[in-house]
Amino acid sequence: MHWELELVFFVILIILALVALMVRNLLTAVVMLNVFSFLSALLYVVMGAVDVGFTEAVVGGGVTGVFLVVLIFKTTRRSTD
């Protein structure tokens, strides 16, 4: 039905996933994963699965980001290259 919207979402999702994999800064990767979660929630809602999209937005965009940021602040990078 909304195939143009879904196509745009899919392209942005792939770009975000690649950026989150390639980037060196871990905080940037976490933010990219958060945006990935919100966009996939939008994708679920567009596809008609409102419940799944709601869960994805709440868990993936809210709590997981906080946990990952706390973990980044509690760990150190051993190598300095």
């Binding site: 409102v50 419940d51 709601f54 709440v58 868990v59 809210g62 709590v63």
Partner: peptide
């Protein structure tokens, strides 16, 4: 309506 125990608890 959409939602339930898991989503509400997470909020």
């Amino acid at each position: 309506s959409p939602g339930g125990g898991f989503q509400g608890g997470t909020l």
